[in-house]
Design a protein around this nucleic acid. Structure first.
Lengths: 209, 209
DNA sequence: GTCTATAACCCGATAGAC
DNA sequence: GTCTATCGGGTTATAGAC
């Protein structure tokens, strides 16, 4: 919410940091790397940010604020069905995965596991990113209405979808092969089909006794 | 396969490395940290290992070779049912999670996401660890026989179980709260119950036509 | 706000006596 | 095999002119 004023140099540093943190990780990206990639000088970076960790905070804020316009809207542009939107979102992760030879997965997940004891503000922003993602997917499952069983916890299912994505991306990155990701998504799909089938029977037999 | 001769000092260095890599990560653990924790000197470490990365290789070999005696056997000692063994394994991760205030998750998963472009031998050993885990769980699902649908791919389901564990651990570590892990395991449980129910109907109606 | 130079520190790894 | 001392280099961050 405390979004600092946008400034071209600051933006270039943030953009460079998003790229490099995703490609090499936070610890393996030096301030010198950031400066080279952003075409900036040490003085500029430390003018806009107190230190390297504050660049990370800016990156995590950018992801959190951009989840709608940068992630969901492109993935959902041509998909209306709420459940297909979930798989369209997963498909967008798969695209980036294969486009980078299974090198680039989920930048938030990578940072979450790289930073073992992050300072509280960093941890809170990682959490906020996961929450925003989960809420969006939960919204899809809620929009699916009675296609899913009435007693099904939509939030649990959204969390489960996130674990499937993060775990699948982790395995595919390690194997340098999209197969494990596909297998995980396929199994999630069959889980949802079973749920839809169960909801269907509930509607046919209002009182199965 | 190329397991070097066991030596007390070497073992102490490996034990220290397993602890520190799991607690702080590979990059944030310095050689000096390893030496202090192991009670060894620089000369000893570099006598047994060409460099820091070779300590990591030793750690990953130890995990890979120890998955049976260190992980599966303790978790399965009092559980015979093959499907319950899967959840006993997941429960052992939950125990470590809560015992460490949701700080310690899966050491392999953390390393897999921390090391973005690992040297080939490191990547292969990460992969080997995931494979050994998946094979063990696949064995459980195969042992479940016709309690699971005949056409179900046991390997896909084992991979899916791993993504659930890794993703759940990631979210719970970030939130410092076991709730997301529990939600993921609960959903996996309901998926398996649905599969068992479907296998049951298949047995009742051999030719549903 | 931008630039250069550099301070202060920690890193992995090595040398060489014992 | 174990120990101490240290090298060379990369790190984050700062100082101070413009």
């Amino acid at each position: 919410m405390t979004t600092p004023a946008s400034h071209p140099t600051r933006d270039r540093i943030l953009a460079a940091a998003m790229r490099l943190f995703a490609e090499k990780g936070y610890g393996s990206t030096s301030v010198a790397d950031l400066l080279r990639e952003a075409g900036a000088n040490s003085g500029s970076l430390y003018h806009f940010f107190p230190g390297k960790q504050d660049v990370l905070l800016g990156v995590l804020e950018t992801y959190r604020d951009g989840i709608g316009p940068m992630l969901l809207e492109p993935a959902w542009r041509e998909v209306e069905d709420p459940i297909e939107r979930v798989f369209a979102l997963l498909a967008s992760y798969r695209e980036r995965l294969v486009a980078t030879d299974c090198t680039y997965g989920c930048p938030i997940g990578s940072l979450a596991l790289e930073l073992h004891e992050p300072d509280p503000p960093v941890r809170r922003l990682l959490e906020a990113n996961f929450e925003a993602w989960t809420e969006a997917v939960q919204g899809c499952y809620e929009a699916a209405g009675d296609r899913l069983p009435e007693d099904l916890d939509r939030h649990d299912l959204a969390l489960f979808t996130l674990t499937t994505m993060e775990g699948g991306v982790m395995l595919s990155r390690t194997a340098r092969d999209p197969t494990p990701f596909d297998a995980a998504v396929r199994t999630l799909r069959s889980h949802l089909e079973a749920l839809e089938a169960r909801a269907g029977t509930q509607l046919e037999d209002p009182e199965p006794e």
